[in-house]
Design a protein around this nucleic acid. Structure first.
Length: 457
RNA sequence: GGAGAGGUGACGGAGCGGUUGAACGUGCCGGUCUCGAAAACCGGAAUACGCGCAAGCGUAUCGUGGGUUCGAAUCCCACCCUCUCCGCCA
């Protein structure tokens, strides 16, 4: 995937050795950068409009003008104060107490006024920061423009839905028949949208995660990581807008902690406030974790079974890469996720999400959809996104570039894959007429003696 | 949970409340020397933001947030984190 216009490295712009090239413009289209808003707000607004976001241009301009005013004035005053304080020091070191006293009296007059201005300044800066932090990422030029999920563009299909020769059941019926999935007990424990798995089904669930981890670590070059299942608000705001999405998260009472809705939240933040040495890139992590989502806006949607639960397991892939390499990385990350489905021999298709359907932080997203006979449809099982420098800017995640200057990394993440949905896909695609399920060949090494999971009697 | 110690730049480690963005060392980059290298010597090098066409100037940053002061890495308060000891516990 080649970018229409490549992002220009930022951060080393003040270097003296910059050739006689025309005055550099800041980073082009890679992220919501205040600089970009200042210099090219109309173009930015236009791009954001394609994803259904209306940028308040005049609001920004007003805020920005106010900021400029207050910041300049404040810094001037600070500068005066500093100069005066320095003079006091000089006078004192010369033992000129009278002079020092006079200067100190002068300085005392700054006190209140400066304090006020600094407060005003902080307030404006915060307002501006908040404004900017609510703006979603700019879509990449290759992303199809559209507003509805159906505007996604199919890239490819793999595999043929197998002919079962009988009316397929969905995973809920199959699971109940096997005595391996128990939604009633789950409801007793925690309410709706949870599951209890038992016996061979629970084992199959575990096997799936193991298989994915093994494949990604030994064949795709990922480092396995285990992380906290809760992160601070700062980390949550690093990967997305916490202000916008906190309703989708479970918060720990009385603590500044949120249950992770995906380990993207914990893993991507490994590099927050870091400057990664160039030679360490790319970083590729794989993390198996539970994911917790409140599904606040999903009332009535996918209520049956474990398609959309408050808690599910996922094997997540995260790349931290050089900006020049992030679109290559997106292809490879997506291919790694696809490889799992191929080995499990589950039919799927890959679509490019349209501008209006992408997540807040994504510049480009491929969804992988697996075939579910019980629903007679392709359903999302993985979502692979390049966030470019968007999260990196929020996290202050940088690397030291070829010129020795710090520059934002690009971050990517994708499910490789959602474990619960993979289980569903296996159950529905490998179901037998007798109500049992065959175990995919790739998983046999993880299932002990089992080759089939048979119906309970 | 109780008692104590501590958080300074890539790292180690100084820092009487006053030209300290921060000594010194290591590492790093450039140079001298060398056939090369090592050693030695000389020099350079933080990050973010603002103003400026630019040269440059300014502001902020010594765990975080407040406070005292003309002036805070240095003093006070709160919080966070790390380490040691004790207790408790999967």
């Amino acid at each position: 995937m080649v970018r229409a216009d490549r992002p220009r490295p930022r951060g080393q712009d003040k270097r003296k050795d910059e050739r006689a090239a025309p005055p550099r413009r800041r980073g082009r289209e890679e992220m919501i950068d205040v600089q970009l808003l200042r210099t090219e707000i109309d173009a930015v607004a236009k791009r954001l409009a394609t994803r259904g976001y209306t940028l308040d241009i005049s609001g920004f301009r007003a805020l920005e003008e106010k900021r400029r005013e207050i910041q300049t004035a404040t810094e001037q005053l600070q500068s005066q104060r500093n100069a005066l304080a320095k003079q006091v020091g000089q006078a004192k070191s010369k033992k000129d107490e009278a002079q020092a006293a006079a200067l100190m009296r002068q300085g005392a007059e700054f006190g209140e006024k400066l304090k006020e201005m600094e407060a005003d300044n902080a307030a404006v800066q915060e307002k501006l920061r908040e404004f900017v932090s609510l703006i979603p990422n700019l879509p990449h030029a290759s992303v199809p423009v559209g507003s509805r999920p159906e505007d996604a563009v199919e890239q490819r299909r793999w595999g043929e839905p197998r002919k079962l020769g009988f009316q397929p059941r969905d995973h809920v019926d199959i699971g109940a028949g096997l005595g391996g999935m128990d939604f009633d007990t789950a409801a007793k424990l925690a309410g709706a949208r949870f599951v209890v798995m038992k016996g061979a089904v629970a084992r199959l669930h575990r096997a799936i995660a193991q298989f994915m981890l093994d494949t990604h670590t030994t064949e795709h070059g990922y480092t396995e990581v285990y992380t906290p299942y809760m992160v601070s608000s700062a980390c949550a705001d690093g990967v997305t807008s916490l202000a916008k999405f906190k309703g989708d998260l479970f918060k720990i009472e009385d603590r500044d902690l949120y249950l992770i809705p995906t380990s993207e939240y914990s893993v991507t933040n490994f590099v927050r406030d870091e400057i990664v040495p160039l030679e360490k890139l790319p970083l590729k992590f794989v993390c198996h974790s539970p994911c917790f989502r409140s599904e606040a806006g999903a009332a009535g949607k996918d209520t049956r079974g474990m398609i959309r639960n408050h808690q599910f397991d996922k094997v997540e892939l995260v790349h931290i890469v050089h900006p020049d390499k992030s679109y290559e990385a997106l292809e490879s990350l997506t291919a790694h996720a696809e490889e799992i489905l191929k080995r499990l021999e589950l039919p799927y298709r890959v679509v490019t999400l349209c501008t209006g359907d992408m997540g807040f932080q994504a510049a480009k997203t491929y969804d992988i959809e697996v075939w579910l006979p019980g629903q007679n449809a392709y359903r999302e099982i993985s979502s692979c996104s390049n966030c470019e420098g968007f999260q990196a800017r929020r996290m202050q995640a940088r690397f030291r570039n070829e010129k020795g200057g710090p520059e934002l990394v690009h971050t990517l993440n994708g499910s490789g894959l959602a474990v619960g949905r993979t289980l569903i896909a296996i159950m529905e695609n490998y179901q037998r007429a007798d109500g049992g399920i065959d175990i995919p060949a790739a998983l046999l090494p993880y299932m002990g003696p089992l080759k089939v999971i048979g119906p309970a009697r």
